[in-house]
């Protein structure tokens, strides 16, 4: 498909290339935006903005990088800019108890038995931004470390470390809230 897109570009038909490109990459771009922003509405806006930037840059696209690398880079930068423009960009440390408090609050709000109706999105949103991005993307991309590393443009070792800590935090928060909640 990427060859077909390049072929359309070579033939001077950017609109056809763009249509193919949207069809091929819309899920990836949306998922990357959602992983970074954590909110479906904002992720859709960000994905739209990224594709518009891609459309405007398509005429000048040069094969210095692969098409997918360029597209992911535009999508990532667009989402990160959107993230920075809001107060959602948090800089928690692992020692901060916010995620545990969130899990306990959630448990207290729910009169349901322990672990029933557990809202994992709310807990993930309480994680430091980098952990939340990696953990969302890992599950969206069918647990592929390689794909997460490629999309976020970070080393695979970093993906594994962030994921390890994030899962540990989430499990610890849930286990503690269960003990407290009875």
């Amino acid at each position: 498909m990427e060859q077909r897109i390049k072929s359309c570009l070579d033939k001077g038909d950017p609109r056809a290339a763009f249509d193919l490109l949207v069809r091929l990459y819309q899920d990836k771009v949306y998922r990357l935006s959602l992983a970074i922003l954590g909110d479906p509405g904002r992720a859709e806006d960000s994905a739209q903005e990224a594709f518009l930037r891609i459309w405007k840059g398509l005429g000048g696209f040069r094969a210095q990088s692969t098409l997918s690398t360029w597209i992911y880079s535009v999508a990532r930068n667009t989402a990160l800019t959107a993230l920075q423009s809001t107060s959602l960009h948090r800089t928690h440390s692992l020692e901060e108890p916010s995620i545990r408090i969130a899990a306990e609050d959630y448990r207290q709000e729910c009169a349901a038995p322990a672990r029933a109706g557990f809202d994992v999105s709310a807990l993930v949103n309480q994680l430091p931004a980098r952990y939340a991005q990696v953990i969302r993307l890992y599950y969206m991309e069918e647990r592929s470390y390689d794909e997460v590393a490629r999309l976020l443009d970070i080393p695979m070792g970093t993906v594994k470390t962030l994921l390890h800590r994030a899962r540990n935090e989430l499990a610890t928060a849930l286990a503690r809230s269960t003990v407290k909640g009875g």
Binding site: Y30, R31, A47, F118, V120, Y139
Partner: peptide, 16 residues
């Protein structure tokens, strides 16, 4: 439980 919930929430997600 976290793994199962994350899989259910995020796996197979498509663009709207």
């Amino acid at each position: 439980e976290v793994d199962a919930a994350l899989t259910a929430r995020f796996e197979g997600l498509h663009a709207p």
